[in-house]
Design a protein around this nucleic acid. Sequence first.
DNA 1: CAAGATTGAGACCTCAATCTTT
DNA 2: AAAGATTGAGGTCTCAATCTTG
Lengths: 167, 167
Amino acid sequence: MDQLTGTTRQEGTHPCPGPEEAALLRQWDSLSGGFRRLMARLLDDVEAEAGVAPSSFQVLWFLLNSPDLSAPMNQLAQTLGFSTAGTTKVADRLAQAGMIERRPSATDRRVIFATLTDSGRDVAGTAALALAAALRERVVNQLGDDRFADLAAMIGSLDQVPNRPCD
Amino acid sequence: MDQLTGTTRQEGTHPCPGPEEAALLRQWDSLSGGFRRLMARLLDDVEAEAGVAPSSFQVLWFLLNSPDLSAPMNQLAQTLGFSTAGTTKVADRLAQAGMIERRPSATDRRVIFATLTDSGRDVAGTAALALAAALRERVVNQLGDDRFADLAAMIGSLDQVPNRPCD
DNA sequence: CAAGATTGAGACCTCAATCTTT
DNA sequence: AAAGATTGAGGTCTCAATCTTG
């Protein structure tokens, strides 16, 4: 029994997690699966009410909270967690649908600003209301306000970059 | 102000969430974003150590915990949360890589069993150990055992299907 | 050369249609 | 019919390469 890894490893056998690791992994399975299903239900609600796909909605909501209802492609990629290439194509679809417009920056001609159109503003608001309603119904009402806040705080505490040596 | 929806809706303006909804949505943004980034880091660790993609790992791990190291395609689709079509192609890749074999069922000739090969068993074990290690380092050690259990329990309580009338 | 954005090729999943078996 | 599995077409994202600007 390897004290460091918890592996039970014998000659001629396969590497395999011990009972402690197995229990941990099963917990993680239900956690990640549950979160994935929850997310899917919420986004399905949004798509049913506002007719907008998840990644598109994330862009619309970000722009709705941005000054002048616009932001450079760069920032959109960051909030989406997408590559810049993927972000370009999300923006293509939104522009094709008439929800955003592309405007080159005056100060730095490399950057392109995405700006909400009037119709994009409507869709963004409608979708946001739909998500908020679904959240209250499916999450906050089930957990209670404080446990929901605990949940958000726990995940947030895990999201700190551990690669900042000292600041 | 619409007491029911929290919308501030005036003539000639756009639908837009009020301050309460906006705060809720921002909380959700950081929650879902944090979870997504966490998941990505864990699965990157697994892929770096065992060279196996997320959906493939999920299948391998499920088979490793199944009797006779095998399960029908049907069950794989359920645990993946994929369509049966998508599951077929994940199995195609795993079979191509020599990690699983397809065996038709003796009792019901519609079903196909996916079975771990010897090499698949190795990869599954290695990947599981890698994920367990990453989980301990990035999650359990940060949160503590009980808060991690709380987290899993909260998400689990949200995962009950609300469409079961009475049982 | 580095940074921002885009393009094309490729990987992965879904939907609709199909085939086989029950 | 209905259920299990597969196929082909289509949509979405990533990677590598490219182009432009700083």
